[in-house]
Design a protein around this nucleic acid. Structure first.
Lengths: 221, 221
DNA sequence: AGGAGTTTGTGAACGGGAGAACAAAACGGA
DNA sequence: TCCGTTTTGTTCTCCCGTTCACAAACTCCT
């Protein structure tokens, strides 16, 4: 999924753990908002939907932030995870391709509330330029370079049709973006040092269909 | 991610392989449309963005559909994978929560072109009822039961705000849906036998942020 | 017909993640 | 202070997935 070829880390956290840290962060935020001050690994694991042993092992990669016999301080742990992931700082993001999905992404509150700030919406279609989406004006794709340079953007989101995705990725890489979240179908090829994560909606449905088909076959037997 | 508790399969395909089959399917479709009649595992692996050894092993779980010294017949292999996944048949789907994301999903062509047919768009907000989205009328959420029964729906998509997701899932399960694709934040709890797959957009960005932060730290040293 | 060249399918080694189980540490009550 | 209770952090084992490497099988050319 991710093309890890960048500088190796000093204290490296397993990929599987990294993918779960945001889930723990969300669960801790919910607990904090509910007024919970302290929680056990068991309670947090339930809120995050994982095994408590796995949760403890994951957290142990970050350090020893719990207290034996007591549990974890919700706000303290939340801060430590946020710092580890890097969402205590502000990440400027550009979204390219303002179709239906781009609209949804621009309006998605889950980005802004977690340290991601959409600094620009870009689209190749001139008919879309000037349109206001989520309080941001849609600009020409050709403005990419100046916007990335101005805001120091490191993360780009591709929500274009599949045919345009590779070209967009190439332009992004050329102007210094090193992390890409790709919603377009197909495989992106990027140089080493650039991370790509892919979200494919139809793949998820097809996996469900496979299991669904199996269930139906089982009933026949 | 997936709550596999249903009937165990006769010839079981590893989860990791199941998740890649749709990717191969897409690559094969692209090759077919490009007029390619035959392709090697090396070529198909490149198109799908995976290792060729992994591709061959994945395909070997389905059977021996290739010819040594030659490769795979594109259309034949495509059909075999489609049949194995279950996308040769028609899967009726309901989408609940027609906000920005629900709009995008309803308009997403990748569903329809792969055997998934959106039979209803449901929303709890009366102000949305009657609105036409992607040629389908938005109906009240309370119509869920009758629609599921009428069309034999087995797969539901949840695109509601997080607070409503669990209630929606409960209703879906109660009326017979056994596979759920969840875009809402938070953990869904469902009974055994129901599969849930979760897509969390902000998790993906946070994983990118983590790696991005690591890259930045590496440059300092 | 036979040999050289290709490409699949799979056996085996390897690495990483999941879960069980337990020791270490903190708290609370007597 | 001492003992029982709770809960973390970690070790150990098992299993799944990835990758390598190679034999089997097929084509093509002479």
């Amino acid at each position: 999924m991710t093309a890890r070829t960048s500088t190796e880390s000093a204290r490296d956290i397993p990929e599987a753990t990294v993918a779960r840290l945001p889930v723990y962060l969300r669960a801790l935020t919910a607990l904090s908002e509910a007024g919970t001050g302290t929680c056990s690994s068991e309670a947090l694991a339930a809120a995050a939907g994982v095994n408590s042993a796995k949760l403890r092992k994951d957290l142990s990669y970050l350090g020893s932030y719990g207290t034996r016999g007591v549990g974890y301080d919700v706000d303290y742990l939340r801060y430590q995870i946020a710092r580890e992931i890097g969402v205590t700082q502000d990440w400027p993001v550009v979204i390219v391709g303002i179709g239906n999905l781009g609209h949804a992404l621009a309006n998605y509150s889950g980005f802004r509330s977690r340290g991601f700030r959409t600094v620009a919406l870009l689209d190749a279609d001139p008919a879309r330029h000037g349109e206001m989406v989520a309080g941001i004006e849609v600009q020409p794709f050709s403005d990419l370079e100046s916007i990335v340079a101005e805001h120091g953007v490191a993360i780009g989101v591709i929500a274009t049709p599949a045919v345009a995705a590779q070209a967009v990725a190439d332009r992004m890489v050329a102007c210094g973006i090193t992390s890409i979240l790709n919603f377009a179908a197909g495989v992106l090829s990027v140089p080493a040092g650039v991370d790509v994560r892919k979200v494919d909606l139809s793949v998820e449905l097809q996996v469900l269909a496979y299991h669904e088909q199996r269930k139906a076959q089982g009933e026949l037997a």
